[in-house]
Design a protein around this nucleic acid. Sequence first.
DNA 1: CGTATTTCTTAACTTAAGTGAACGAGTTAT
DNA 2: ATAACTCGTTCACTTAAGTTAAGAAATACG
Lengths: 192, 192
Amino acid sequence: MQDILFDFISKYISLTEDEKNALVSLDIFRSVKKGTTLLKEGQKSKDSYFVLKGCIRTYYIIDGEEKTTAFYTEMEALTPPCVISKTPSEYYISCIEDSILTISNSDMGVEINSKFPKFEIMCRILSEELLAKQQIDFDEFKTSSPEQRYLNLLQSRPDLIQRVPQHQLASYLGIKPQSLSRLRARILEKKS
Amino acid sequence: MQDILFDFISKYISLTEDEKNALVSLDIFRSVKKGTTLLKEGQKSKDSYFVLKGCIRTYYIIDGEEKTTAFYTEMEALTPPCVISKTPSEYYISCIEDSILTISNSDMGVEINSKFPKFEIMCRILSEELLAKQQIDFDEFKTSSPEQRYLNLLQSRPDLIQRVPQHQLASYLGIKPQSLSRLRARILEKKS
DNA sequence: CGTATTTCTTAACTTAAGTGAACGAGTTAT
DNA sequence: ATAACTCGTTCACTTAAGTTAAGAAATACG
């Protein structure tokens, strides 16, 4: 399981055995049960997550309604904004499948970065890549209708549509569950 | 004018006179006329931008229609995704006011980063911050109606509504210009 | 200066998403 | 086993955005 993390890291920098051991000794691997809430609104946290297996989601509760804004699956990393801004979290993170994650404290990050400057470089590259990716996702969202967004998702992350409850998918697409049902019916109608 | 850049940088790291001089000697300050296109769809580019004065926008042309996805004003930085992914650009960047920018090549970035490790750290922090900020913006967009998005913009960046043409604002909000007009009329109606 | 062009607004009509309610299927709890 | 709950779907109705078209206002330009 650790190898998944090392494979991921090796896309950015190469690690010596010493460095790998240093990472393992941090004891950051966690098994998390479906339904576990990792972070709540109002909490302060310094934890970043990396999904080795499973799926976690971020969501807000606005006017009593859950608004899901992101899903993170295998090989995806999440550092919540509240960790960067050092303010209480505005959203929730929960685990929607039995998952294996790394959970790493930002203090550990600082320590690792000063001990191994390589990590600083990886973090920069990773942040830049995620920023670029997120910009493109955001642009795609802005320039598409809900129906197009659903069809895009069907192309780009077909697994999500299978493994995630419809009502969470709906708010991820920016619509209500009823509208998603209707939209899907409409698409089937067109195909025939 | 250079001081604006140094003020910005000083929020992240402190610079020696030597380092400041090294930056200035890169000759990255540019005066750009309103209407200038800085990047076109299909072009490859390694240039990042930082706005000292004025305003630039990014937009796609989809089915012959301009879709504006972002505005960058004073003290905001833009590294287009195509610079990170090293692929041809999918969008346009143009200057919507007479502006003063820094335009820096990513090769220069690599050189500076290796000469001054400080810069590597600044770039990481800056990327992380931008990523966190963008996540929040994206979440806000997803969880709001066009009307709420307009009202939010009125709060958070009132200057934009003054300095940017309505039809560009509209597509930035994810709607058509006619809908923005109507929406504004509706808001005025409610107030009275 | 006047003409062309762009920009913004308004209106009538169409289309799609929001809302509230109901229903059946599947799950959980007691 | 049954009651309670969650989840997805469907329906009728409301609301808002898309579309097409027209015209007014501002701007650019010869």
